[in-house]
């Protein structure tokens, strides 16, 4: 104890001086990380804004795509109807033709 008494004002002072830079170092590192993290948060916030705009666009795109699909469906149906009409017309024309051809013949021979 007697030896540690005179060294008491000494060694802890040294220790504190040696420890101060360490803590200072850690403090600095923490400050640096805090700065970086704040930067990161800003970046993430920007990313979030961009993502939201992208999301809006994607939403509208989805709606448009649905509308387009419906439109395509309608077009297809219209085309199908047209096709059907044409077919009906053809069939009708052929039938009429056959009637026109067959009926006079039948009439003629009877």
């Amino acid at each position: 104890m007697s030896s540690s008494v005179p060294y008491d004002p000494y060694i802890p002072a040294q220790g504190s001086e040696a420890a101060a830079p360490k803590t200072q170092d850690i403090q600095n590192q923490i400050d640096a990380t805090v700065g970086i993290m704040k930067d990161n948060i800003n970046k993430v916030a920007q990313r979030g804004e961009r993502l939201e705009s992208i999301q809006d666009k994607a939403d509208s795109l989805a709606v448009n795509a649905q509308g387009f699909r419906r439109g395509a469906n309608r077009v297809r149906k219209q085309m199908w109807w047209k096709d059907m009409k044409m077919r009906m017309c053809i069939i009708l024309g052929i039938v009429i033709l056959l009637i026109v051809i067959i009926v006079p013949i039948v009439v003629h021979f009877t």
């Binding site: 439109g71 395509a72 077009v75 297809r76 085309m79 199908w80």
Partner: peptide
């Protein structure tokens, strides 16, 4: 819609 449009084109 692409499929339907193709069908419509065929028609």
């Amino acid at each position: 819609s692409n499929k339907e449009l193709l069908k419509g084109q065929k028609h």
